[in-house]
């Protein structure tokens, strides 16, 4: 039977570079409209794990992946699966805001559509407006859509990148520490935006900020040295962790 609510099903996923194993057999089920926070100390494999989910990990030299990861029952790593197709279904927001250089604000948001062949102007313009509104950036940029994307402030750039991802309307969005390069006010705006987006999209967010995880997520996964130590409802993980290691990390004993 097909479980429509099961978005991502990951079984014994292992990944690394060359001889180094960075993700050591992680299994995890992620359901529709979940907002999952991945926490853990630096180098614990949470970013690598995230990058396996849209097959971006393999873009780095020497990278390898083993195990199984399914998106809507489709194996991401099956032979013949086109990574381009996978990435169109799983959006990603990066740590550093990275608008495309020499492209206007409008072109940045439209890039995912226009470069992939959807050229109908009126449609693209509608999508751009809709996504900028969704990313809570429309009011700030509607009069200067032709200005370069890089002319915006860091926080605005990050919201632009979120709008760019929304434009391809992926059912899942991965966020790799999306606020770690931003000031507190921009961070608050992005968090607000994430809370709004979660009504429609499944979001997996890597964060170093435990308050952030506690504030916005409804499920939290704690990674340590490449292993998934604990995965459960955020309230549970933060108040009554099942594992000793989780408790030590959350109370600040290491990491």
């Amino acid at each position: 039977m097909i479980n429509k609510d099961l978005v991502l099903s990951i079984k014994e996923l292992r990944a690394g570079f060359g001889n180094a194993e960075i993700v050591k057999g992680v299994s995890m089920d992620i359901h529709r409209k979940d907002l999952v926070a991945l926490i853990g100390p630096s180098g614990c494999g949470k970013s690598t794990f995230l990058r396996c989910l849209n097959r971006l990990h393999e873009e780095t030299e020497g990278a390898w992946v083993k195990g199984k990861a399914e998106l809507f029952q489709q194996d991401l790593y099956e032979r013949g699966t086109d990574p381009v197709e996978i990435r169109a279904k799983i959006g990603m927001v990066f740590q550093k805001p990275n608008p495309f250089p020499s492209m206007s604000i409008f072109d940045n948001v439209a890039a995912g559509l226009t470069i992939r062949g959807i050229k109908k102007r009126s449609y693209v313009a509608d999508v751009v407006e809709y996504c900028l509104k969704q990313a809570a950036l429309w009011e700030e940029v509607k009069d200067k859509l032709k200005a370069p994307g890089t002319s915006l402030s860091g926080g605005q750039q990050q919201r632009l990148c979120i709008a760019r991802t929304l434009a391809i309307s992926p059912p899942v969005i991965l966020m790799d520490e999306p606020t770690s390069a931003l000031d507190p006010i921009s961070t608050a705006k992005i968090e607000e935006l994430i809370m709004e987006l979660r009504k429609q999209v499944t979001i997996i967010i890597v964060t170093h900020n435990m308050q952030q995880a506690a504030r916005i997520s409804d499920k939290t996964a704690f990674f340590l040295l490449g292993e998934l130590i604990e995965f459960g409802a955020t309230a549970e993980v933060f108040t009554k962790p099942q594992e000793k290691k989780t408790e030590s990390y959350i109370t600040g004993r290491f990491g």
Binding site: R87, M92, F94, F100, P101, S102, M103, G112, I115, I168
Partner: peptide
């Protein structure tokens, strides 16, 4: 990470190079 942003949008590699990297 600019290239990765392009790839993450489901844009094929050669188009990322032509329309994003080279254009940039």
């Amino acid at each position: 990470h600019i290239r990765e942003a392009g790839l993450a949008l489901g844009i094929p590699r050669w188009r990322v190079i032509l329309s994003i990297v080279l254009k940039g």
